[in-house]
Every structure is written in C-alpha cells, then in structure tokens.
Simulated scan of single mutants.
Amino acid sequence: MSDRRRDTRPEALLPSKRPVRFLTDTGAPARGKPAYPEPAPELLRRAYRHMVVGRRFDSQATALTKQGRLAVYPSSKGQEACQVGGVLALDEGDWLFPTYRDTVALVTRGVDPVEALSLLRGDAHCGYDPYQYQVAPQCTPLATQTLHAAGLAYAERRKGTGRVALVCVGDGATSEGDFHEALNFAAVFKAPVVFFVQNNRYAISVPLERQTAAPSLAYKGIGYGVRSEQVDGNDAVAVLAVLAEAVRHARSGAGPFLVEAHTYRMEPHTNADDASRYREEKETERWRQRDPIARLEAYLKRRGLLTDEEVASVAAEAEEFADRVRTAMNADPRVEPLELFDHVYGTRTPQLEEQRELLEAELKAEEALT
C-alpha cells in the first residue's frame, strides 16, 4: 500500500458548497459536470437490482414486526442508494461497520437475511460470522462503532494489507463524543477509514437544526484535518461516485475521508415510533418525490441501460427473495439455553461455570420429568 502525503490545506479538505449530484429529482442528468467520474454502467445496473431487492426486503421485515416475528425493525426505506452504495464501493476484503438501521447493507453484502435479522428478533447480538463477510456486528449505541472502525483500519495500515474500513453512522451519531474521537484518531494516524454519515434529518425525533449549527455535517471533518464531501444521498450515481473516491483516497494512504449523504427516512424511526408527532406529512411527501430507486430507474432507461422487461425481472426476483425471508422467519428459532454462557469471555470464569452447571442440572431434571 502506498502512503500518500495528505493535503491539509483548508480548501483541499472542505466539501463542495452544494451536495454533489448527477441526477435531478426526476432522474434526468443534472446541470453542471460533477468533479467525480461517473460509475460504470454495469455497476449502476447492479446498484439498481440491489436497491429494488433491498426495499422489498425492508418492507417484508417491517411486516414481520407486525406479525410478532421481529421484536423491532428500524426501516431504511428511502435510503437505499446509501445502503447499497456503501457496500458496492468496497472490495471483498474491506470491512463494513454498520448501525442497527443498515440491515439492507448487510443483505447487499451477502449476509444471510435470517442471520442479519437475528439481532432484531432477539436471538443473538450478532447472528452472522463477522470474519466470513468482513462485516462487524450491527451497532445500536450511537457512534461506538466509529472507534472500532478507526482501530481496525489503523491495524490494517500497520499490517500493510491495503484494506479499508467504511463505517456507517446517522446524523445523530455526529453529536456523540466517540464520533469526534474516532475522526481525530483516524486523521492523526492516517487510518484508512471512510466515515459515511447518512443524514436522514432526524435523530429519532430531534431534527437536524437542533443537532448542529454547522453549514452541513460534512464540515465537521475539517477541524480534524479530514478530507470531506457532501452528496445527494438519494442520487445513487452520485453516492457511488463520491464513495469510490473516498475509498480510493483512504486506500492510497492519504488517511480518512468523511462523506455526508443527504437523505431521508421515509418510515418511522422503528415500528414503535409515531413519526407524526415530530414531522409533517407534507415534508415526507417532498422527499417521496426524490425517491432514489425511481430516479435511478428513470436514468438507466433514458440511457438505454434498462428495459421494462428487466424492471419486471428484478421486481420478480425481489418478491422471491421476500418470500424466502418470510418462510425462513416464520419457522420458530432453535433455542439452546446453555448458549447463554458461550462467547461471554474467551475462557469462562468460575462464576459462569457455576451458573452454567446449575442451569444444566435444572434442564436435565426437567427433561427427566417429561
């Protein structure tokens, strides 16, 4: 891995004055030429497919909460360009550090959907093998995974692997101390990590203007010497283009990169939230007109890269995927009580051993009665 000298001039660190965009709200080419190369057509077609499948998966997971199969589900409907773009920007060996809202990103990465939903069903904190997919456990506490990503990325730099870490956070996480500590550490030690902020306008019910007075969240990078950019998070072409540069920058040895994607959470914070208490429907409707899937579909059709038959085929694939998820999640999970004591420590403590033996004895006694 090369170790490029970092350009710390303020003008080199500042984001664009307006979010980078390639597409208008209707999917037509936007005016002006962005300062980033446009992604390859095949990558855009892949992104479209994953976005359609991801949205159908998201709606199926939301339905599963109403059926009692999931304890909670934080929807990412409307954020598909970010969910998919963050994954497609990475190489297979790179690491993804997701939040609890990034389940669509996990599925895009190839994580088994049932394993991805294990946290939200309450089966386990992490139902998949992080090393198999290079995906860290989904993080519920805000911003703690930014420190994990910075530390892992620094370790990869020390080992010279050339791997990059991309850490997803929401706008609310940028108000946490861990986020700023991670930015500072990553910048000082030139850790190859991309901080990807999905600014969906609300930290549960707290609107953006009550969280920050900065021109945009992307400006938070300059104080730490971190190159930053802001992008239209509902423009999949722009998201892929900017993240490709962010990953290239980090991989080159030039240090971390902060990307703020301006997007919107169409659904409530979770199924337990009433979004009508803190935002108006007309605001949601304005963002509905900027739907990331519709914009990309219109653009690909305009360029002759997508046909009506292919649209129907992708929709059918999404339905089949949702059906498989529904069938798998309707099966009761296998519960092994003694697993409570596994993976707590590398070696179980005497206290845990004692508790495990007590439970094992109770289970055997109950089994003998039946």
Rank of each mutant, 00 (worst) to 15 (best):
residue 124 A to Q: 12
residue 43 L to D: 00
residue 92 E to V: 09
residue 108 T to F: 02
residue 369 L to Q: 13
residue 139 C to T: 12
residue 166 L to V: 08
residue 258 L to C: 06
residue 159 K to A: 13
residue 175 S to V: 01
residue 350 P to Q: 12
residue 186 A to R: 02
residue 285 E to F: 11
residue 300 L to V: 05
residue 353 E to G: 14
residue 72 V to Q: 11
residue 112 D to A: 12
residue 114 V to W: 10
residue 161 T to Q: 08
residue 224 Y to R: 02
residue 26 T to P: 00
residue 304 G to F: 10
residue 252 S to K: 11
residue 346 G to D: 15
residue 360 E to Y: 09
residue 66 K to C: 06
residue 185 F to C: 07
residue 185 F to R: 03
residue 305 L to K: 09
residue 32 G to K: 07
residue 301 K to Q: 11
residue 188 V to P: 01
residue 367 E to L: 14
residue 105 A to G: 07
residue 351 Q to D: 15
residue 204 I to L: 13
residue 301 K to P: 00
residue 341 F to E: 13
residue 52 V to F: 09
residue 86 G to H: 00
residue 38 E to R: 09
residue 291 D to V: 03
residue 310 E to T: 10
residue 92 E to G: 03
residue 352 L to I: 02
residue 245 E to D: 14
residue 216 S to K: 04
residue 144 T to Y: 05
residue 80 E to H: 03
residue 29 P to G: 02
residue 107 V to G: 01
residue 370 T to R: 15
residue 95 W to A: 03
residue 74 P to C: 10
residue 198 Q to H: 12
residue 242 V to Y: 03
residue 13 L to G: 02
residue 273 D to Y: 08
residue 80 E to G: 04
residue 222 I to L: 14
residue 322 A to R: 03
residue 38 E to C: 09
residue 202 Y to L: 07
residue 300 L to R: 00
residue 18 R to D: 13
residue 301 K to H: 09
residue 36 Y to E: 09
residue 30 A to T: 01
residue 360 E to N: 13
residue 78 G to Q: 01
residue 98 P to I: 07
residue 305 L to N: 11
residue 232 D to S: 11
residue 45 R to D: 01
residue 42 E to S: 11
residue 14 L to R: 11
residue 304 G to H: 08
residue 145 Q to V: 02
residue 225 G to T: 05
residue 121 R to I: 03
residue 139 C to I: 12
residue 27 G to I: 03
residue 324 R to K: 13
residue 304 G to T: 06
residue 190 K to L: 05
residue 113 P to T: 13
residue 356 R to V: 07
residue 276 S to K: 11
residue 337 P to F: 12
residue 13 L to S: 06
residue 358 L to M: 15
residue 291 D to M: 03
residue 45 R to M: 10
residue 317 E to P: 06
residue 4 R to E: 12
residue 30 A to H: 02
residue 249 H to T: 00
residue 235 D to R: 05
residue 358 L to F: 15
residue 248 R to E: 12
residue 5 R to W: 04
residue 344 V to F: 06
residue 54 G to K: 07
residue 217 L to A: 08
residue 155 A to K: 03
residue 178 D to L: 04
residue 237 V to N: 05
residue 173 A to W: 06
residue 208 L to T: 11
residue 269 H to F: 08
residue 273 D to P: 12
residue 230 Q to P: 07
residue 181 E to M: 10
residue 234 N to W: 02
residue 67 Q to G: 03
residue 20 V to D: 01
residue 271 N to W: 04
residue 301 K to Y: 04
residue 124 A to H: 13
residue 259 V to L: 03
residue 133 Y to R: 07
residue 84 V to G: 01
residue 127 G to Y: 12
residue 69 R to I: 02
residue 5 R to C: 08
residue 29 P to W: 04
residue 218 A to T: 09
residue 287 W to N: 10
